[in-house]
Design a protein around this nucleic acid. Structure first.
Lengths: 125, 125
DNA sequence: AATCAATCTTACGTTAACGTAAAGGTTTGA
DNA sequence: TCAAACCTTTACGTTAACGTAAGATTGATT
């Protein structure tokens, strides 16, 4: 399929796809005479994975450093170990983010409770 | 205290403080003849709250819409009800963020497991 | 009085992640 | 064959959240 089709399926613009290509996140499977970019289903999967990671506040740069982990079929022993390392680092980051968000959540609930009590007290005045 | 002192205490630059002021997030308690900005302890608390919210991926714009809730001492009955509304909306946002992060966390763990198994299998070849 | 550090405003620069317009090539269907 | 629809590259524009430099004031110290 061409770039427009892929863009539609992935809910992004062609510009975005070309931009990702410039960052080495994604490449067309074929590109001959005409200069048109042609993609397969794998490209769609990659694009979706990218958007998914973006949604989790990963920068395109960070995504670039891990996207291969999800799609490279094989690598050597040491490569795999390194991938595990990176993934564990990411796990730690995510855990910390979850923690602080949960703490923030408690704060919000506390604030709401305070406000509600205040409203109760004020109600009859 | 002056802007430099406040900046040091809050671990930001004076430029950042002035920028926040331009966004109405924070104002000096005093500012007469000289043109110098003078702040009290409340400013430090506000700044820290701002940095805290930033850490949770809130934009300065979003922060502007909630910061008052934490520092405005009183308001009328309807005002309080509105504040509660806003806080509940925020709670929802935060909950959703936590959810997606937890989902992502599971995926990472899954990936790590996959990789480790792969390593196991490859180890003796 | 002189000097030096801190502050002031103004304004251009920077990074990320694209948007958008211009000017032109390609493919496809009538 | 020729026009519509899609594609190409090039390049300037945009938002957020400041950084940074310039030139002028102000406050504090000697």
């Amino acid at each position: 399929m061409q770039i427009g089709q892929l863009a539609k399926l992935a809910q992004v613009t062609p510009r975005t796809i070309r931009y990702y290509e410039s960052l080495d996140l994604l490449h067309p499977s074929e590109r001959e005479g005409s200069g048109f970019r042609y993609y397969g289903q794998d490209a769609l999967a990659r694009l979706k994975k990218i958007e998914y990671l973006k949604n989790l506040n990963f920068s395109l740069d960070e995504i670039g450093s891990v996207i291969e982990l999800y799609f490279s079929e094989s690598s050597n022993y040491l490569g795999k170990l390194k991938i595990i390392e990176i993934l564990q680092a990411h796990l730690k980051e995510v855990d910390e983010k979850i923690d602080s968000l949960q703490q923030f959540r408690s704060e919000i609930i506390l604030q709401i409770a305070k406000m509600q009590q205040w409203v109760e007290e004020t109600r009859n005045s």
